[in-house]
Amino acid sequence: MNFAIHITGFVAIYIFMLAAFAGWVIIGGVPAILHTPLMSGSNFVHGIVVVGGMFALLNAATVQEQIIGFIAVLLGAGNAAGGYAVTRRMLAMFQTSAHVAKHPHHTRARRPRAS
């Protein structure tokens, strides 16, 4: 059996079109209060590029390809890991009055750190 995926022109355009609609609709419903975590979260999602970098690096057959592939994985991994870390941190901070009232000592507010 052969499970290799082959995507031809029109199929690609259909995928792109439907994905674009999905992105538009999903994000269209996000309240403005979440715009920063959302941007950071979508930033994280395009970190999937690291998988493409893995493909390029593992198939590298020259030193030049190895170097560029290494950079691709390095940057892609940074995109994914960093995007995830900051998005988690931001989202963990959002809480309601009810939550604050119930857990006054559990407030997730953190001291500002030196930048």
Partner: peptide, 19 residues
């Protein structure tokens, strides 16, 4: 020919454009 990259990339592309 990686549909996961295509979908994730395009969803973010559309979301970013809307934003």
């Amino acid at each position: 020919e990686n549909p996961a990259l295509m979908i994730a990339g395009m969803v973010v592309g559309a979301a970013g454009t809307l934003l």
